[in-house]
Design a binder for these strands. Structure first.
Length: 287
DNA sequence: AATCGATCCAACCGCGAGTAA
DNA sequence: CTTACTCGCGGTTGGATCGAT
């Protein structure tokens, strides 16, 4: 495509920066500052566009930049922040002094590739929900954290595999009786402490529509997951909006989550870092 | 040593927001 | 109100590097 508007009137160099260009930019910025990036190339004697200068300075040349591998603490912080704000890299970077949004984004994308790209596995034909339970080790071996929902009915029907789940794994059900999505607990039916109430569920604002015997599972870094496969109520397949759930999700991190839908006799996988419906739907496992 | 696929990451692109004229 | 322009952001690309064979 075309160049930036700020580059149209001049012949600009592109590609990697040379040490000489870096030196010119650093010398100019350190003595004059950068009030207007579009003026920087001309005044600094660079055949670059202002946008390129800005990017080079912010991502590489500024003195407070921190390079090298991310520490464990930084990694945790990135994961936690991503669970809250999603792909708002600049926001995440603002919490990590010396790190750039670009660096964090690159790190995250490569991390994602390592963590979530897995091949589908063959699952056995279930005769009952317990048969799924029998094969949980297989799923675990394949690298998935697993959970199972006996029936997608109100929360009292939750049937999970307690020993295989972290105690903090949040599962919350949409209560069709009162249109309230406020029931939150872990697989032991214990309410999770210190969590704010779920956002109100209103179909018009991206939250799950009232009246659906739906289920929402908070996946790993996902903000939301759609309601269950096989829902024939005709109601919305809308999800809780990620931003609405961000406070609730907080700093939790989970591995892939298996959801067993008895109605459709299928298992769906909520992949790590799934961030939308499409991603959810792209991992169906029909038995 | 050579080859080649995988991975990394610096840089580019397009878009939206803000703002001045 | 409209237009033009700049800045900043997130998504994407492609060259450089790494590692396995």
């Amino acid at each position: 495509m075309g160049h930036h508007s700020c580059c149209n009137q001049q012949k600009v160099k592109r590609g990697l920066w040379s040490p000489e260009e870096d030196e010119k930019l650093v010398n100019y910025i350190t003595t004059h500052g950068y009030g207007c990036w579009s003026e920087v190339p001309g005044k600094a004697g660079l055949q670059r566009c202002g946008k390129s200068c800005r990017l080079r300075w912010i991502n590489y040349l500024r003195p407070d930049i921190r390079r090298g591998r991310f520490s464990v603490e930084e990694e945790k912080l990135i994961i936690n922040l991503h669970a809250v704000v999603g792909n708002r890299w600049a926001h995440i970077a603002s919490h990590l002094p010396g790190r750039t949004d670009n660096e964090i984004k690159n790190y995250w994308n490569s991390w994602i590739k390592k963590k979530i790209i897995r091949k589908p596995i063959n699952l056995p034909t279930p005769t009952s929900n317990s048969s799924i339970q029998n094969h949980m080790p297989t799923l675990m071996q394949a690298g998935f954290m697993t959970a199972s929902i006996n029936q997608l009915q109100p929360y009292r029907e939750i049937n999970c595999y307690n020993s295989m789940l972290p105690s903090s794994l949040p599962i919350f059900m949409f209560d069709s009786a009162n249109g309230d999505g406020s029931v939150v607990g872990n697989q032991n039916y214990e309410p999770l402490q210190g969590l704010p109430p779920l956002p109100s569920a209103e179909g018009s604002n991206g939250c799950m529509t009232a009246g659906v015997d739906g289920m929402v599972a908070v996946g790993p870094t996902a903000g939301f997951v759609g309601d269950h496969e096989g829902d024939t109520s005709g109601a919305s397949q809308e999800c809780f909006d990620k931003s609405d759930l961000s406070e609730w999700i907080g700093t939790q991190l989970y591995e892939d989550l298996f959801i067993w839908d008895q109605d459709s006799e299928s298992v769906c996988v909520v992949p790590q870092a799934s961030t939308n419906d499409a991603s959810f739907a792209s991992f169906p496992f029909t038995l």
